[in-house]
């Protein structure tokens, strides 16, 4: 039972969605604009900025760095998050709320504090800055996210299935491989993809911890200062937005694969 139509509210919601989406739309729009001035009226259609982007070797270096950092940190975060989610969904134990809070903290505190904390420890230990500390920061930052996604997925997991497998003669490892893993695989992939997106887009940790290797957001940040270089960042931004949206939609779809209708959910409970 739901309320009937409310036209005023509906119009407001449409306006709000405009507020949410229109600003992002300007990036693709301007990326096809001729010339380097990002202002209306548009100067005419052109793909010159995309060609410009294609011919930036530094951009591709940064892209590979970002993909490397994203894959490694999200893979690690998904694994840590899976074990943690298993503990939270399967057992009741002392210090449960405290552990949950502790794992969530890196995501909840202001990011700059995490960034300088890692910077200070890294510099004082005397290790060179670069992709490694960035990866550690991203694992810290992505694990809470992946964990929330996996807990939502694993709350409905029937522990009897694991027991049934044990009962039918499989040990702990084969039970994981033949039962838990295939059933939870869509959720694990979703967690991995979303973790990857977070790491891929992350700027602040990367800015503080970067050595000579740039990630893509750092590269873009560097280009923003030069008006001439800006348009190809727009083109890059447009590509990133489209690609991210596709990956996120795939992840959303995977999150609900095989879930009964009433359990489908995209919300996060923190």
């Amino acid at each position: 039972m739901k309320l009937n139509e409310n036209r005023t509210l509906y119009i407001y919601v449409l306006i709000y969605f405009g507020f949410l989406y229109i600003p992002v739309m300007f990036l693709p729009i301007f990326s096809f604009n001729q010339g380097i001035h990002m202002a209306f009226p548009l100067q005419g259609f052109s793909t010159e900025h995309y060609e410009d982007m294609w011919n930036s070797p530094k951009l591709f270096d940064a892209l590979w760095n970002s993909i490397y950092v994203g894959v490694v940190s999200s893979l690690m975060a998904t694994m840590l998050a899976f074990f943690a989610a298993k503990a939270f969904t399967k057992y009741k134990f002392r210090g449960q709320a405290l552990s949950y809070g502790a794992i969530l903290t890196p995501f909840l505190i202001p990011e700059i504090i995490l960034a300088i904390a890692l910077l200070v420890i890294w510099v004082s230990v005397g290790l060179p800055l670069g992709l490694t500390p960035i990866i550690i920061g991203h694992v810290l930052f992505c694990t809470p996210f992946c964990m929330i996604i996996l807990i939502a997925r694993m709350e409905g997991f029937d522990n009897n299935l694991e027991e049934a497998s044990r009962d039918l003669g499989e040990g702990v490892f084969m039970t994981f491989w033949r039962v838990s893993f295939p059933i939870l695989l869509p959720g694990l992939i979703a967690a991995f993809l979303l973790g990857f997106i977070i790491s891929f887009d992350e700027f602040l940790l990367a800015m503080f911890l970067q050595g000579s290797d740039q990630t893509l957001p750092i590269y873009m940040w560097g280009q923003l200062r030069f008006a001439r270089r800006l348009p190809h960042v727009l083109a890059l931004g447009a590509v990133i937005i489209v690609a991210t949206s596709l990956v996120v939609m795939l992840a959303y779809w995977l999150r609900n694969v095989g879930q009964p209708q009433e359990k489908q959910d995209l919300t996060f409970k923190i």
Partner: peptide, 14 residues
């Protein structure tokens, strides 16, 4: 989910 940096930058354009 779309890049935070780009969203802020979009507002600069606006």
């Amino acid at each position: 989910w779309t890049s935070y940096l780009l969203r802020v930058f979009a507002w600069k354009l606006i």
